[in-house]
Design a protein around this nucleic acid. Structure first.
Lengths: 345, 345
DNA sequence: TAAAGTTCTGGTAGCGCTACCATAGTTCTG
DNA sequence: CAGAACTATGGTAGCGCTACCAGAACTTTA
């Protein structure tokens, strides 16, 4: 008894119902209770109901931490993104969450604020929870982070960006191609004096990839592709409106603006509405993302729509496939995009 | 040696660097390594640097699961919300995340889809991770869920809704008062034929609380407060536009519409722009939330702005205060709201 | 009916870490 | 300078669960 007492006194866990308590109550071995909770069909119906009754009677809630330690893994999936204030990531997370929610996995959320060192530290932390797998934004990481992710021997899905090489699996879009696609559209529409406008482009290199694609098309069409305007504010409607006016001032002859996302582009259209600037007659506006707002504006915004929610779903599916035992080649998926030509161009 | 071999063979954890490995490498006891990782100032500088070198040399990453089991708690904070597709919750989560991120706590995300049974089950699950505390949306829960939350002896912060009684701590807004506030404004502006328009109001009872407040003011002013229109779609701009037209059709004499959120209200204004309906001359439109979009519309939307991000920050602060040892009375905070009178009313 | 299979159940030994206590070493007090 | 009062380190014993193996109970087969 002394032994028990000492043990009991040590932690706050006093009084917490354990698997052993349930076992005692049901008159079975602890392992049997464990089986009822995790592999019910390995236990005869008679014992199973007896155990289930004991579970209810005592209000037993499994200690997932103890289980995780014993089985070297928890049903947790860390999702690491650059920011929670950017809608894109939210939609992707939503897709992941919805796909995972009925499979008993829990999302562990981490945000890096676009800082790769922070990302590496965060990866160390979340790997400490022995997760089942991990979903992380981007294909560029610190060397150390990549090593850790490879060493942990668990499924890793890199999202947002589709590229040639990944750690394990990859779902995303080809950002340069997105930039090319919209630039091509603008050129085809006959626009010749086009600026690319963004914010915080140095932090999010995927924005730069789109700009590169944009520039490439313009220059191969003999158009000046270097007209670039950006600032260091978060991408809000207000910022979009402000950048819109700044661009018009800086390049008075502009006939089109290619914004790096719909927040800015929508802000520009709203600002134009307020000032009586006619879009697209005075100036054309294009965006990227396919936010719901884009098609409700007057004029409706031409944009490249990316299936963000579906990207999350696909990422979760890849993860589940790996957890289900699927081995071998990297699972890769270019989730694609769609050019939505509307009234603003 | 045989013992070790057997142990090693049991799990996949083979090769994983443990605290014991670091201790051996540094020539100290495991507990000293533990101290260096968790309470560095309890260890002399000499040993500390020696241990730190060993950690770097071996690439040691602490197993938080083992630590969590030993110390009966992990540095995880579950956040349970009804939905991840509703911006409100996202902003709150963002506030929580930002406040917690440098304190070493990790968010565990759960969504209930407005289902209280699901919520109760989710609570059981996340409590299984021995979290440091928990943040949960709403003041109404299943009896069983409340019991579990009380029994777990950890800080619990209920958010979104401010009310008379809570489990432990509470940060939110008084929804009925929000409804009253806007209704009062509409009545003061001289509107008399006012409809309340929402979507999925049966699922989110906080919406109903606002409607009750609205109705109360109208009726005490001798106005018909029962004009209510809703449907079962998610609150999008499209839905808002559709409900706007439906309301005009059903109550042709309407002079104002009080929408239950800015998504719907913004959708209404965008639809009005498209159709040439003049707001507020033909009809006034009011919303709730204070989304960034609301002030960028033409006309700018009159709304009740709620500091959602700050609500998250405050919730996280309450949690940290409790974890810091603050005992006693419930920590409660009515985060308040602000009526933003703009051009649409 | 005996031998061989097929369930089902239980005992044991950790998973990797930290709480608790004990001890050695150090500084302080009068 | 002895004894008290710290401070720095280490040994031990679990945290609550599951993997592994062994054995018991029940079927099937020849």
């Amino acid at each position: 008894m002394g032994k028990t007492e000492r043990g009991r006194r040590r932690h706050k866990g006093v009084g917490r119902v354990t698997l052993g308590d349930v076992a005692k109550h049901a008159g079975v071995a602890p392992i049997t209770v464990s089986r009822v909770m995790n592999n019910p069909d390995q236990v005869s119906e008679k014992l199973r109901t007896r155990v289930e009754q004991a579970v209810d009677a005592l209000g037993y809630v499994p200690n997932l931490i103890a289980g995780g330690l014993a089985s070297a893994g928890t049903r947790v999936i860390p999702v690491i993104v650059p920011s929670l204030s950017i809608l894109t990531y939210i939609d992707v997370i939503h897709g992941i969450q919805q796909t995972l929610e009925d499979t008993g996995y829990q999302l562990l959320l981490g945000s890096t604020d676009f800082d790769l060192d922070r990302e590496a530290a965060l990866i160390d932390t979340v790997l400490g929870y022995s997760p089942s797998g991990i979903i992380i934004a981007g294909l560029r990481h610190r060397e150390r982070a990549v090593q850790r992710l490879e060493a942990c021997q668990r499924p890793v899905v890199e999202i947002m960006e589709y590229g040639a090489s990944c750690i394990d699996s990859n779902v995303g879009v080809d950002n340069a191609e997105v930039g090319r696609c919209m630039a091509r559209h603008l050129v085809e529409q006959g626009y010749r004096r086009i600026a690319y406008v963004g914010s915080r482009m140095d932090r999010d290199y995927r924005t730069l990839q789109r700009y590169e694609g944009h520039r490439e098309i313009l220059e191969s069409a003999g158009i000046d592709g270097s007209r670039l305007l950006q600032n260091d504010e978060a991408a809000s409607y207000q910022t979009g409106g402000r950048l819109f006016m700044e661009a018009l001032q800086r390049y008075p002859d502009l006939d089109a603006i290619h914004f790096t996302n719909d927040n800015l582009a929508a802000g520009a259209i709203l600002e134009a509405n307020r000032r009586g600037i006619r879009v697209p007659d005075d100036i054309a506006v294009a965006g990227y993302l396919g936010l719901p707002l884009s098609e409700c504006l007057t004029p409706a915004l031409t944009t490249v729509s990316v299936p963000r929610f579906e990207m999350g779903v696909q990422a979760a599916r890849f993860l589940l496939a790996r957890l289900d035992g699927e081995k071998g080649e990297a699972l890769r998926c270019d989730i694609g995009f769609e050019l939505m030509v509307r009234d603003s161009t």
